[in-house]
Structures are given as C-alpha cells and as structure tokens.
Nucleic acid binder design. Structure first.
Length: 230
DNA sequence: GCCCAGGTGGGTA
DNA sequence: TACCCACATGGG
C-alpha cells in the first residue's frame, strides 16, 4: 500500500449475513420437495423467475415426468411443451435430457452421485454436462448434495461490486473465494441460507436499474463509500 | 412497450 | 481472455 492510499475498513461478509437474516428471516432453501426436483429446478430457473419454474415443475409432475428416466425417454418436443412456462423451453429440454443421461452413470442414485468423489472433482464433472454452468453446478452440490460450496449468482456479484471500491467486476470464482475464505461463515450452517438471503434481498430491492442502490434499506454498506470486502 | 428474472453455450477477435 | 448474442416466458 502506498503512503497516499487510505486504509479502507474491512467488511465482514458474516455481518452482511446477520443484517440480511434480521431483515428477511430464514429462507429455508432450496424450495423443492425432493433432491431430484431440486436438480431440475436448478436448470429451469436459469435466467427465469421461480414462479415460472413452478408452473413447469407442476406440468412435469402431472405428466409423471419428474424423474431421471423420463428426462431421458420423453420426446424432446413433449418435454419442451411441459416446461414451456419457464422460457427457453427448447434449450432447457436439451439440458434436462443431458442431466438425465448424466444421472444414468450413477444409476439415477443421487446419494451415490454425491458420494462418488471429492467435491471439486464432482464439480468438474457437473460442469462438463451440457447446460450446467458454475451456478447451476454449485446449487446442485450445495442444496441437493449438502456439500460445502457457496453459490454465486447475479445478485451476489452485483452486491459485491457495489460494496467494493470499483474497478473490474468480480468473476465467479473470485467472488466464491471471498465467501469460502471468510472464517465467520460456517459452510454447514450458513452457505445455503446466505445465498437464499442474497436472492431475497435482490428480489426485494437490489435492482440492476438502480446502480447507486440508494434506496437499499438493508445493506447500507453498498452506498456508504469505498470499502474492501474482507 | 420496456425491463427484468436465482445462466449457459457458441461464436468471434 | 473477453465480449457478443441467442435462447423465451411472464410479471411489474
């Protein structure tokens, strides 16, 4: 650090967690009845509102298609019709097909899948599946697999960028490292809840169209000047 | 009518 | 690596 550069206060992410929890209460994510439904929901919710995903999931349940074998065997056009409300239905139908084919490697057994290898190897394997990117993979590992990995989404990147002193936008893995390195955050107790709280806050007030975040009632650290994320 | 939503894959320079 | 764009419905 140069002599002219002022030392900025460190912001503990754990304090952000406390603020969000006090404002929004426990979120109890992921909103799915089964781990398999969670995996499907993770694909369907890509760049889409959850209410639209729920409509698609309901259609799949009615058609008895909410299982791995159905993802593999159902005609793609029919699958796309079921998930129509979730948008990108043709692309997502192909993604669900790829998910079903991937699960067949583990005999459609999610416990077997998540216990098959170390976390980072499993993550790499998921990322190789068509339609599964970093956020989708990490959501699956955390919420369905119960594994200690933090999920970064657009809300998280937006909040972190606003809390920082400017410069380049954070990349996914860089942002994820900030959470993994914060000793005040317990992976078992906090990762799932923290991500859900950030989403709750994002839906509530942290709009992309409000770059100054001036109206944010919760995270005033977003608008109180330059800070450095711890 | 416009913007946005719990992203990802493919193409290009 | 860093951009761009396509993918698409439904709510505010």
């Amino acid at each position: 650090m140069t002599g002219t550069q002022a030392r900025r206060p460190k912001l503990l992410l754990s304090s952000m967690y406390d603020r969000l929890l006090a404002e929004y209460g426990p979120q109890g994510w992921w909103p799915a009845e089964t781990d398999f439904e969670m995996l499907v929901g993770a694909v369907l919710t890509q760049n889409t509102t959850w209410t639209n995903v729920e409509r698609a999931l309901t259609n799949m349940k009615k058609a008895d298609a909410l299982n791995a074998a159905a993802l593999r065997d159902t005609d793609l056009e029919r699958l796309a019709a079921m998930i129509h409300p979730s948008g990108y239905f043709n692309a997502k139908a192909r993604k669900l097909r790829a998910l079903g084919e991937f699960l067949a490697r583990y005999d459609d057994d999610l416990i077997r899948l998540f216990r098959s290898k170390p976390l980072l190897e499993l993550r790499k394997e998921l990322l190789a599946v068509f339609g599964i990117g970093p956020e989708t993979a990490d959501s699956m590992l955390l919420y369905a697999g119960g594994l200690p990995i933090f999920v970064i989404d657009s809300y998280t990147l937006r909040v972190l960028d606003r809390m920082r002193s400017g410069g380049r936008e954070l990349k996914y893995e860089t942002a994820q490292r900030l959470f993994h390195r914060d000793k005040g955050i317990d992976p078992e107790r906090h990762y799932g809840e923290f991500h859900a709280l950030i989403v709750a806050h994002g839906k509530d007030t942290c709009r992309a169209s409000d770059p100054a975040c001036d109206q944010c009632p919760v995270l005033d650290m977003c608008r109180t000047g330059p800070r450095t994320v711890a």
